[in-house]
Amino acid sequence: MKLFNNADVVIALILLVAMVFIGLVNPAFWQLSNIFSLLKSNVVIGLMALGVLLVMISGGIDVSFTAFAVAGMYLVVRSMVALDYDGVILPFLCATAIGGLLGLMNAGIIHKFNMIPLIVTLGTASVVRGLVLGLVGTSNVNINQMPDALIAFGRTDIATLERANGTTYGLTAMIAIYVAAALCMHLVLTRTMIGRSVYAYGADPEAAKRVGFKTGRTMIFVYCTAGALAGFAGLLHSSMIWLANPRDFVGLELDVIAAVVLGGASIFGGRGTVLGTVLGVFILVMIQNSLILMGIDTTWQRVVVGAMLLAAVTVTALRDRRALV
């Protein structure tokens, strides 16, 4: 069966089964308001996951992106407050650029010194987080200080519906940004040579070099894009929750990496798809969401996420090992 060889199909089936099951346990799951809120929770994790996907396809792993997200978010929001600047486009460009530049640092160290991405990104993550807290500040920027334009932007809905009791709920417009980013990433990965170079590098770095790929350029592309996406997602997060907390995103690395692995990307590099990752993110967010709906304690959610990561890693490792023989 060709169909079942396709990891994306398997993941979609798992998602479907999970949705049916959760719907049976808790019919409230299928309410449009819940679906909308689910989709909303997908956006930030999803954007970060796209970056992590790129890193994982290249055979690396990135744990620094949450630190870069904090850097992008907090630096930009604090600057806006300090300069009393109110706008949307320029701040997002800045956050993206900050993330991208920090990613460049990752790429440089990893490529130049041929070092293990996990260790490098652990190091850069700690340095960046420390610098943000030490040099920029440790206090939250609360809703009363947050620039109005950012809040307004984060509140934009594409569709607004009314409940029976007269309150309204909507589908956030941010989902459009996420979908657009995913589509872009998909096209880049499947239709461009730089995209294919990421797969080639992940499959066999030495062979990629011999075929004539400029692998340094590939690494820069991978880590800068991952950093830029994280920076962008960081600011987006803060505009959606009307808060900029310099200690935010701690532990989110695990969720995002779990989602990407759940989406079928290989920890050994060389495989992974945007569709799979989008589905993986959805599964993860959905399960976390239903645990909340069921009133399960947040500490136990960590257990579930960890277990899902382990299960997904095991399954993909078995798949990849079988393929190796």
């Binding site: 040579m193 294919r196 797969y199 080639a200 992940g202 499959a203 066999d204 030495e206 062979a207 990629a208 011999r210 075929v211 004539g212 790929f213 290989s266 590099g269 060389g270 495989r271 393929a323 190796l324």
Partner: peptide
């Protein structure tokens, strides 16, 4: 060691070289 890309398809392994050139 052949320097092929194990996780990529036959088609891609064949054309990557040419496209790069």
């Amino acid at each position: 060691d052949l320097s092929l890309f194990p996780t990529l398809t036959v088609v891609e392994n064949l054309f990557l070289n040419t496209y790069l050139r």
